[in-house]
Write a protein that binds this DNA or RNA. Structure first.
Lengths: 195, 195, 195, 195
DNA sequence: TCCTAAACGAGACGGTACGTCCTGTCTTTGT
DNA sequence: ACAAAGACAGGACGTACCGTCTCGTTTAGGA
């Protein structure tokens, strides 16, 4: 056995862990992030508050964990043969997911804005995965020569996700398939012939 | 007589209003948005809590008002003769302002995410002004023929402000003059190569 | 005109005074003394709070005044020819009045216990009248020779009103005609059989 | 095992309970009942307000409890061989105690008058004990044949305590040894030869 | 088979801030 | 000048949660 450091005492209860994540998820749906409380989670999960604090540092950590537990199916990478089509497909799918997770995402972002420690966790555990997926799509286009090698890929990332978050936060326009095509077209146009 | 609708009773105290906005501003600088409390504001302003609740619905409303009171100098509109130069100058200045107001903006956004009623106020009183300024810049470009009349101006807005907010929130890249030039160039490139 | 000291300015509004006393009375009946507030009186009387403070020093003063305004019909003195019969009749009537005014009396007493200034007013304007009436009854008995001239009349007063208030406050026994007869008998017996 | 009904969870803190009662007592002495506040008690006891509300329903309940905690030494029953002497000794001692507790008693009575629920508690926990003591004294006299078996003992109770409270509340005469002798004499006289 | 030790549920603890209520004072306009 | 209206500073209220603590109970090794 690789890990001989098994500690004595009663082991962590997997049932409690799942009950907490489930309760958190349900509370989020019912009351929204603003109405999420440790006491509410504990009561709904039939768990002592201490048990939550033992394994998570804060309300936001529990919420993030409960989100990752649901949304961890992985982000599919399209390969339609061209940057614009790839982007359009990628965004279309991403928008669909964001739709359902939107309210919780907004709550987590809110916490992230008020709590730098959580912000780090949010960036590392959630955003990083999204950015990696988009990076794959863009790298395909670089490999095909559609994007110049010296282009500022970071900016392209920020434009794509910037629009996504901006519209998610402020609802200036819907996040639908037409939006996906529009953004894809804009990005593709901007890299087509530079200088 | 212009206004005959003067109500009876003691009129609202302008001194109290200003003291509250000032105290809120100072508290925001000292403790950040997360550390802002009604009791703190009232104590620092030398005011009863009731007086705050009489005129503002929530902590966030006071904070927003205190921000608008400071940042209402107006957003200058550049006219450098070309879209890319205009955008670059506009963003450069906007970034500078955002720099100082960033922390408060993040707090207000956080509140906005948790409280739909406040979200509306935030959008209408703060964002609207920013969008109007950018609209002027883009309209100049449309008038010059740099942007096709049928372009999706809404998307351009969202791209510009999307990148701004995304970087403000997640700090994936700095908001400096180089960033301003990069975004300007991307936008200009994207409208140049449509067919 | 007898009084030339008429002060300048708008004279005191009798209508306001009556409206305040009436409103106070009604509030007392509806909410009890504990639920009486200056704001409530002012609102119901259609009067500014200041107008109340201008003429009465406190909530309790208004309440006392409103009570005196109602209960000032005067206390009738019986003369049945003998101490026991006189006392019995006197107490019987007094109990009847106390019955209806009981709740308000209890409120005023409560205030009296918490506020020494009001206690004085309560004693001088309310209790004094009651004691004077009883004094007359007892003096009749002294004149008739039923009570020795050297008896402690103060103690007799305190016994009679002591039982009355004690039962009013703590409801250990009803204040009815039988009680009136019992007290009268006890007092008469006690002065009959000295040494 | 006598008591298996131990509830789960952290047990009530005896230290907190005592600190609260002590703080309440001290606040009562310093500020009087009118100046008693939950916040003051909590602060002085170094306790959260919730902890007070968890175990007492109101300010008055705490005050009553704090009083009982102090005055629970028990009321001594005299046996001097005769009713008048017994009563005189009993009242003399009772007056002495009432002297020191007077202000607090008045406050509790005031609360009792405004709040029927508290009135019940006050009657059951405080007055009942006093009445039981007096009952013992009177029963001794009944046993000795000094009081006729068919006498209205309830009335005698109310006369004794009625005078006590009346003088406590309205200060018409002092509560001293002479008063004790006077009341004892009056009671004894009233039961001496009835027919 | 016990013993040790940690995790568990429950819920009380000291605190902080909340938003409401009422007080007594003040500052207006209207009569 | 007084009345009404109502804003003002102040302060206590009772509630909601926070994160910590202290119980008795449960569940696993290791002795």
């Amino acid at each position: 056995m690789v890990d001989g450091t098994r500690r004595p005492g009663r082991p962590r209860s997997e049932a409690a862990r799942l009950a907490i994540l489930k309760a958190t998820h349900d509370e989020l749906l019912e009351r929204g992030y603003g109405g999420l409380t440790m006491e509410g989670i504990a009561a709904r999960a039939g768990v002592g508050k201490q048990t939550i604090y033992r394994w998570w540092r804060s309300k936001a950590d529990v919420a993030l964990d409960s989100l990752l537990n649901v949304a961890s199916e992985g982000i599919p990478i399209p390969d339609e043969g061209g940057l614009e089509a790839d982007l359009s497909a990628f965004l279309s799918r991403t928008f669909g997911m964001q739709e359902s997770e939107g309210p919780v995402l907004k709550g987590l972002l809110a916490q992230s804005l008020l709590d730098p420690e959580f912000a780090e966790a949010f960036r590392d555990h959630f955003l990083a995965g999204r950015r990696a997926a988009l990076r794959t799509v863009l790298n395909q286009a670089v490999a095909r020569g559609e994007i110049p090698a010296d282009a500022d890929l970071g900016l392209l990332h920020d434009v794509v996700y910037g629009v996504l978050w901006y519209r998610l936060l402020f609802r200036t326009a819907p996040l639908d398939d037409e939006a996906a095509r529009g953004i894809a077209s804009l990005i593709a146009g901007s890299v087509r012939n530079r200088e």
